[in-house]
Design a protein around this nucleic acid. Sequence first.
DNA 1: TGGGGAGCCTTAATTTTCCTGACCCTAAGT
DNA 2: ACTTAGGGTCAGGAAAATTAAGGCTCCCCA
Lengths: 300, 300
Amino acid sequence: MPVAPPRPKDLPLTALRAFEAAARLGGFAAAAQELGVTPGAITAHVKQLEAALDARLFDRTPRGVRLTALGQQSLPALTAAFDALAAATGDLRAAAAPRTVHIATLPAIAQLWLSPRLPALRAAAPDIRISITALETPPNLKRSPYDLSLFFSDDRQGRIAPDVIFPVCAPALAATLRSPADIAHHPCLSDATWADDWALWSSTLADPPLLPDGPVFSLYALAVEETVNGAGILIGHQALVERHLADGRLVAPFAQRVTLPRGLRLWSERPLRPGTPARFVADWLRHTPLASPPAPDTTP
Amino acid sequence: MPVAPPRPKDLPLTALRAFEAAARLGGFAAAAQELGVTPGAITAHVKQLEAALDARLFDRTPRGVRLTALGQQSLPALTAAFDALAAATGDLRAAAAPRTVHIATLPAIAQLWLSPRLPALRAAAPDIRISITALETPPNLKRSPYDLSLFFSDDRQGRIAPDVIFPVCAPALAATLRSPADIAHHPCLSDATWADDWALWSSTLADPPLLPDGPVFSLYALAVEETVNGAGILIGHQALVERHLADGRLVAPFAQRVTLPRGLRLWSERPLRPGTPARFVADWLRHTPLASPPAPDTTP
DNA sequence: TGGGGAGCCTTAATTTTCCTGACCCTAAGT
DNA sequence: ACTTAGGGTCAGGAAAATTAAGGCTCCCCA
């Protein structure tokens, strides 16, 4: 019956957030990625929280962690509270920078789909600042400071375009190709995150050709650039190569095209109120086709 | 139209909490006290948040800070979110230590009112752990990890006893007192936080005596101890001296008693569900009178 | 009117805390 | 047996809090 046990300290906020993320995502590594810290930090935070509570929140197994009953019953309220906090934070940020729109997207989409559209968008809304952040994985929009998210997804909600794939190459190379079988004589460029694009496409042919190996890129935009330079044949994603097809730097030598179940998807966590900059940008991107490229400069 | 502005970082959680507290309480110093940090830390947090938002949240004036419009409009949602978070952590803490009750109270109440009751309470509920934290100021129960709060307050909700004040002294000294006028010949002990108790009491007399100065204590329990030792006359608070009156170490030499508008108040932020340890402790404290002190040990 | 004195916030330097980065460990799936 | 995937551990360095000092008003009172 001590009169002064060490004052019951408030549970540390960051440790609570680390626990909530780890519990919701089912692992420390995933939580570390969402919070942008290292797994070691999550370990320390959870341990700190468990020490403060004097209770286990996770059962440690050699291949991961599993929530204890205590952790399970506490998770929903914590998640709701952090969601509310994130929503309030989002409102605060929007109120502080009312004319800025933050977009999260894949690096490839940023360079090959979004970037060509930006000049026209900027002209259409000169007072809106567009901030683009390239991420490998779609963020948790409930928690991240982005207004719009633009990724490939199976979800049809907010789909802008289907993902259609087909081989593309430089015009000079295309001139040497007669049929899909000719692919065997050229390098097949592909992207690491879409490793089986070539297989998917060729499997739809009546007579699938032998596919030679080719360089695998971790940046799709780089693969596109190499293809423009004649390095080989790339398995193209329509949305990402349309600009190069339009201005003639790339051509599609074969008619065969494959529509994948996923598509380019633009969405936001909360409904965008009409009149807000984010709403304008979303509507504009959704409904404005890519403008024609500037005519090649033929004057000296 | 930069493609990679420094990635919009998440607003730091602790900075948000510092801002919320400062905004809600109307000052950095008050926020620092509620959060248990120094004012300098609040300054740094708010500055960090303002830098992250690239907007002012407070107008600095020489005698304090005032919320900007941006700060004002963002405050309610933030406060609600942190309240939800505090409620969730409270539930988590309760689930982790289901048989512990945390009580916040004044040091004087802890020593003079609560402590004498603890043995009987412990006997009545041996499986409940009582944790008592002595604070000079009632905590914000919505945010603090206490189940029960026990302070003097004007609020009648949850009142346990009125605050009745009257002079008390050691029996030997009392024997020399005939009327209130005799007070003038003895030191008048008082507590710094209740500095005008003497004036309040004496002003109700038909013939107010001249009040001599006396030692002012910052710990009321110490003043009581000194009075027991015959150091002078103390202005007693009924709830805090009842134990000493009951066992005869102090007596009340005069009949005149003054009931102040405030009273001893026991309350909790959220309604206590029946069957919970906190509910049991609250009911017990509310309804169980102070047990008789053990008989003086007269055997050799 | 003008000079303590008290509040309140800020700043600078020191101390403490936290995060990272590289390594180890264990178990499950080749 | 080797690889992979997930956590745990530890030393060093970055970022935070504390402490202590400083500036700026207002208030009070002579």
